[in-house]
């Protein structure tokens, strides 16, 4: 009998990012903060927003959010990021960065990213999907000059999409699985659009302080319903009908056409470390 300490029994390797309770805590905190940074115009009308501050708010949050994101990334990567998951993250981010300018619209439309993000989140789990959302948009920004105040918000929202894909029920398979992923794709396409609009609503239309603004502007201190209507019209007119629907349609088509084979390829990658064990070409 061999002594037990000489026996190495290593299970087949798996690509994924483990999330412990600490990481969940940080992720939840950052999610709440992120939602606040995006949705403040609707969240705090009751106390009355100081007009001069409301004007700067989009920038202030754009400057603070990276700090939060760095904290989250440090926490998520600290626990369980082995070389394999890191390499796969890098390669998938590169693919996302490559197809984004090729197929997507400008900085506001992130059409093509969702498809691979959702599939990767499904195949490799929530932690991986969350990180991939961050790294995909970050890589894309670095490679195609998309660094700007919008970047941290996009990263955060894309992270949520990847996370959601990873959290979907595991046992669903076949047609139901595809239908579930497509539903997620459509929902996140519109939600992502609305959240991004919410952030840049006061930013792009300006803030109506002295009554000279347009009627779509954010009015600090106005009743929530009032601002919600204005925002609703703003987002409907600027993107829901255009960008967001485009994003939903492209994601759906991509998932329908290549979703299944791509998911199969990704799932295979998890156990792929096995060196080819085939026999030779000998007749």
């Amino acid at each position: 009998m061999r002594p037990a300490d000489q026996m190495l029994d290593i299970p087949p390797p798996i690509v994924g990012v483990a999330i412990g309770w600490r990481t969940w805590l940080v992720m939840i905190a950052s999610t709440l903060l992120g939602l606040f940074a995006i949705g403040w115009p609707l969240l705090i009308p009751a106390v009355g927003v100081a007009p001069e501050h409301a004007d700067d708010a989009p920038f202030i949050f754009a400057a603070l959010l990276p700090v939060i994101l760095l904290l989250v990334i440090a926490q998520v990567t600290e626990g369980g990021l082995d070389a394999r998951s890191l390499a796969v993250l890098g390669v998938l981010s590169a693919i996302n960065a490559a197809i984004r300018p090729a197929l997507g619209a400008g900085t506001a439309g992130v059409e093509s990213v969702f498809f691979l993000l959702i599939l990767a989140g499904r195949a490799f789990g929530p932690g991986f999907g969350y990180l991939l959302g961050f790294t995909s948009l970050f890589a894309s920004a670095l490679l195609t000059a998309g660094v700007g105040p919008w970047l941290p918000f996009q990263m955060l929202c894309a992270g949520w999409v990847g996370l959601a894909a990873g959290l979907l029920p595991k046992r669903v398979s076949g047609k139901a699985e595809m239908a579930m992923l497509i539903t997620l794709g459509i929902v996140s396409a519109y939600l992502f659009g609305a959240l991004m609009n919410m952030w840049f609503w006061p930013f792009i239309t300006g803030i109506d302080v002295d009554g000279t603004g347009s009627s779509l502007d954010y009015v600090p201190g106005a009743p929530i319903l009032d601002n919600l209507t204005r925002f609703g019209w703003f987002t409907l007119l600027t993107s829901t009908a255009g960008w967001d629907t485009g994003r939903a349609i492209t994601t759906t088509i991509a998932l329908l056409v290549v979703g299944r084979p791509v998911l199969a390829v990704l799932r295979r990658a998890s156990g792929m470390a096995r060196v080819s064990t085939g026999d030779t070409l000998k007749p």
Binding site: G90, S93, A94, A139, L143
Partner: peptide
């Protein structure tokens, strides 16, 4: 990850 992405 970014370096890997850039070189990939």
């Amino acid at each position: 990850i970014m370096v890997v992405a850039v070189s990939a």
